[in-house]
Design a protein around this nucleic acid. Structure first.
Lengths: 363, 363
DNA sequence: ATTAGCACTCATGCCCCACGAGTGCTAATC
DNA sequence: GATTAGCACTCGTGGGGCATGAGTGCTAAT
């Protein structure tokens, strides 16, 4: 097995320095061993277990002393006297920032991802959705994928289609092929010809304008023209206003929410309920992902700032379109999650995902 | 409190007769009391508890004798000797078919539903989604709502909008205002004018045709005309074929899945996992609802024919558009669910929902 | 036909204890 | 001076024994 000794998200210089000074090589080795062990077993790790490992050359007594020190410094915790040690949040943080060795993907992982992206995709939505799927399968954790942000997508086409006397469907198509639609009520006294004029004007004037700016544009630049052309200005404006109202709620795809229950630390139904209830709320999920800067990010326990997921970590990574980050994929697992594995999968997958998307939209 | 003594779904004549003959009035009374009690407490019900009830005039010994008989006939079960009785599936079935008294809605229920439907809705999807929401809130169980079946919806408008050299978005709008869209790859050698012709032809020939028949129509009736008009028949047909391929996956809305965990019989994480995993699979959920005939239906435990929900019941009701059932709303709860309450809520809600939908689509 | 009475069953909770994993400290060793 | 062997101590876990009480089934009296 080869080892990529690449680091994740270099921590702020201060932290790195302070921490590096504080821990001896031996302490790092032991801390690393404890966390590795705990990630695998979910049981407090004892000094004997560590000293028996081939890569550790010290007796259990030595390990015990170091463990006591590490605990004093806050990297480890003891559930109770006479139990082994468990990594603290600070411990995990140090592990992720300084100790993590990123191995290469395993053969089945490579196969899985390759097989996945070799498929022929017909829709972006499908790609995104299935990405969530394969992510949760590969990791056995909960995957969260946020669809490509539309806020910078540009308008390609507007259409208003009447479906009854008083209602119509407004359809927006973006340059990325996404379709937003909205049923609107058509005021009594607005004429068909007015609607037609409206649509023509919009298609003429608004093509290529980012969705996020459309509303403003309508109410400023085009406003005068509208007044001239429309017989029933007020009603029409109200209708328009609603048509462009809060479209593009971010689409979020969750997969493998039940995977949480495989973790021994989540045998407790109340904890699980807390998490699942959180995941039912879109705003909370968005907060969990909460990042837009490019790159990979690990947030551990309390860093998530959400009671229900105190014992969880979230690893997120962005994917790109034309070089700009447009979406986030994330993994939610216990703080005791397999960071190395998840990180390497996310790195790989977001790269392939970006490629696929770019291919999708290239001319 | 008034009592509507209306019955649910009159069972098949055979059952009704056989069962009515087999149970004395007293046995019915006792069975009813036991089930009511068990629904409230989730604990095995003892003879003393029953005999103490005001509406029961017999000693505990008498009740015990009757209980033994009811158990022999299969309406009750004993978790172990020296525990009280628990209703069997057959018991629940009898209860639902013959004993259930449907009370009127309580004031807060009426308020909740009224308040809900008094809102101004702008989209069908929104109505459906929020129906699921209020249902799970009112019942404290999991609600499942299947959006209006589109398979009988008729085509109103087709549009194909190019978004890059090789891809386009096909948009179908139905007469009920639903929008389906699909990204398609456009073959190299198909011309813009061909696409335009295509769309015009479709809009002309297919307007008013039920979605379910569109594919067939294209490949039979319109086929000849297409051949005449198109330069690149084969490629075009392939594109078309995909555009109309498997649209309209039924949209399913689940709400309150975490409510299951409030039930004392589902403190067990493995049972919960089983159910939640089931609910993640759309096909399984559709099977759970599994009905298209109009009216209210109660399915209990094994009747659902799905291992994971052996201890659950599903109550479904259809809602209508223009007099035809177009969708199903359902409640998933423990077999020990409050049938009377759920049934009355469903009855009321589907009626109001149908009204709202009809108003939505009326000219 | 109903019911009072009684013996019997069995899940539940509690206490007690033995066990063992693991620690911290001290003294011996390298 | 750092490491380690040794040992006393802690404490959670799991099992056995026991009392409790809810609930039953049966029998005999009403």
């Amino acid at each position: 097995m080869e080892i990529d000794d690449c680091r994740v998200d270099p921590p702020c210089p201060l932290n790195r320095e302070v921490m590096d000074i504080m821990l001896t090589e031996r302490q790092k080795k032991i801390l690393n061993a404890i966390i590795d062990d705990y990630i695998r077993s979910a049981e407090p790790v004892g000094s004997r277990t560590i000293s028996k490992r081939k890569d550790i050359g010290f007796s259990s007594a030595t390990v015990r002393n170091e463990m006591a020190d590490l605990e004093e410094m806050g990297y480890l915790e003891q559930p109770h006297t006479s139990a082994g040690r468990v990594p603290s949040q600070k411990g995990y943080r140090y592990y992720v920032d300084h100790l993590l060795k990123l191995r290469k993907l395993t053969a089945p992982e490579i196969m899985g991802i390759k097989y996945f992206f070799d498929q022929k995709f017909y829709e972006v939505e499908q790609v995104i959705q299935q990405t969530a799927d394969i992510l949760s399968q590969l990791t056995n954790y909960t995957s969260i994928v946020m669809g490509p942000e539309v806020f910078q997508a540009k308008l390609n086409h507007i259409q208003i289609i009447p479906i009854s006397k008083h209602s119509a469907v407004a359809i927006l198509v973006t340059d990325t092929g996404r379709v937003e639609n909205k049923t609107i009520q058509v005021p009594e006294d607005i004429s068909l010809s007015d609607i037609e004029k409206l649509v023509n004007l919009f298609n003429h004037k608004l093509k290529g304008v980012p969705l996020s700016q459309i509303r403003t544009r309508i109410f400023t630049e085009i406003n005068r023209e509208l007044r001239q052309h429309l017989e029933t200005y007020d009603q029409a404006m109200e209708m328009i206003s609603r048509a462009f109202d809060e479209q593009s709620a971010d689409r979020i795809y969750l997969k493998g929410t039940t995977n949480i229950m495989n973790q021994p630390e989540f045998r407790d139904i109340d904890k699980v309920r807390g998490i699942l209830e959180l995941l039912e709320r879109d705003d909370a999920v968005i907060r969990l992902l909460g990042q837009t800067e490019s790159g990979l990010q690990v947030r551990i326990g309390q860093e998530l700032d959400e009671e229900a997921v105190n014992n969880c970590s979230v690893i997120t990574a962005t994917y790109e379109l034309h070089g700009n980050p447009v979406g986030v994929v994330g993994i939610l697992g216990p703080t005791r999650m397999e960071y190395a594995k998840v990180i390497r999968i996310l790195n790989h997958l977001t790269r392939d995902l970006s490629q696929t998307l770019n291919k999708f939209y290239e001319d």
